Simulated assay, not measured.
Amino acid sequence: MQAIRLKPKKIIYHLFVAGLAVLMLYPVLWLFMSSFKKSESIFVTAHSLIPDPWVWVNYVIGWEGIGGHSFGTFIMNSLIIVVLSTIGAVLSSALIAYGFARLQFFGKRFWFTCMMLTMMLPHDVVMIPQYILFAKLDWLNSFKPLVVPQYFGIPFFVFLIMQFIRTIPTELDEAAKIDGCSKFGIFFRVILPLITPALATSAIFSFYWRWEDLINPVIYLNKPELYPVSMALKMFLDSETTSNWGAMFAMSVVSLIPVILIFFFFQKYIVQGISTSGLKG
């Protein structure tokens, strides 16, 4: 057999990439290993990864939850918020993107510019007006302020999907129109099946953003039975008594499982959606 010869440049490249991978994954590894340590020794022995002794009960205590609600309740709340928000964000953004990419209407460039400008607005600017609006609608202490706004389109997703739609030949639209399809028929029967990578990419980003969101649940939710995972983890910390770091780290590991699974199963859509949306037809 012919010996495999590795060029020095390739060796250096792989060592460099492996070093970066270890550097990026180390905090996650430290979190995982610290979840098996005693709460009072986590930061004392932060330099050591190996727990001594191994404390498996952190996961049991953490899953029991806080305030009479198990951690499974918080995970279910997060899933409800994430799933409903993702469906609304992706479908509404796809429909808006189709309008900007394919339809002609008065003030198209003006409205598109206004939409893009909203991406530059800090969340702090709209936080108070949104709270006043939702308070007048009597939506506080419910999932509505977290879910309903997602059904009016997300500017970043609109731009991403619109760029993807532009790569689709307009001849397909014309052929469907000749066959009797309306504008909505063209969208649902022709465009929507062809923009699956962009839809999947938007769905994955929406899942990540909603899952890790903390500021909005803190503003709108005051009942523990409605808390998502992000707020539940914060409840393990107590400024007046001893914080249960072990249980919090254990449930942090549990909360990472859906994120990691989504990434590994759909990572090809992230690359394909972002790379293709940068092309122009």
Results as ranks from 00 to 15, higher is better:
Met1Val: 08
Met1Ile: 07
Lys10Ser: 12
Tyr13Val: 15
Val17Cys: 06
Ala18Asp: 04
Leu25His: 05
Tyr26Phe: 15
Tyr26Arg: 08
Val28Glu: 00
Leu29Phe: 11
Phe32Ile: 13
Met33Gly: 10
Phe36His: 02
Lys37Tyr: 04
Glu40Ser: 15
Phe43Pro: 00
Val44Tyr: 04
Leu49Asn: 04
Pro51Glu: 02
Asp52Ile: 01
Pro53Val: 03
Pro53Ile: 05
Val60Ala: 07
Gly62Val: 05
Phe71Lys: 06
Phe74Glu: 05
Ser78Asn: 14
Leu79Asp: 14
Ile81Ala: 03
Leu84Ser: 13
Ala89Lys: 12
Val90Pro: 14
Ser92Lys: 00
Ala94Gln: 03
Gly99Trp: 02
Leu103Asp: 09
Phe106Ser: 12
Gly107Phe: 02
Phe110His: 10
Phe112Glu: 14
Thr113Val: 08
Met116His: 05
Met120Tyr: 04
Pro129Asp: 10
Ala135Val: 01
Ala135Arg: 04
Lys136Gln: 09
Leu137Cys: 05
Asn141His: 09
Asn141Gly: 07
Ser142Trp: 03
Lys144Glu: 01
Pro145Met: 11
Leu146Arg: 11
Val147Arg: 03
Gln150Phe: 07
Gln150Asn: 12
Gln150His: 12
Ile154Gly: 00
Pro155Ala: 01
Met162Gly: 13
Ile165Asn: 02
Arg166Val: 00
Thr167Ile: 09
Pro169Asp: 07
Thr170Met: 06
Glu174Gly: 07
Glu174Phe: 04
Gly180Cys: 11
Gly185Met: 09
Ile186Tyr: 07
Val190Thr: 09
Pro193Tyr: 13
Leu199Gly: 03
Ala200Pro: 08
Phe205Ile: 10
Ser206Glu: 12
Arg210Asp: 07
Leu214Thr: 04
Asn216Leu: 02
Asn216Pro: 00
Ile219Ser: 02
Leu221Gly: 06
Asn222Gln: 14
Tyr227Arg: 01
Leu237Ile: 13
Asp238Lys: 08
Ser239Tyr: 02
Asn244Phe: 12
Asn244Tyr: 11
Trp245Arg: 01
Gly246Phe: 07
Met248Tyr: 00
Ser252Asp: 05
Leu261Glu: 06
Ile262Met: 13
Thr276Trp: 07
Lys280Tyr: 11
Lys280His: 12
Gly281Lys: 10
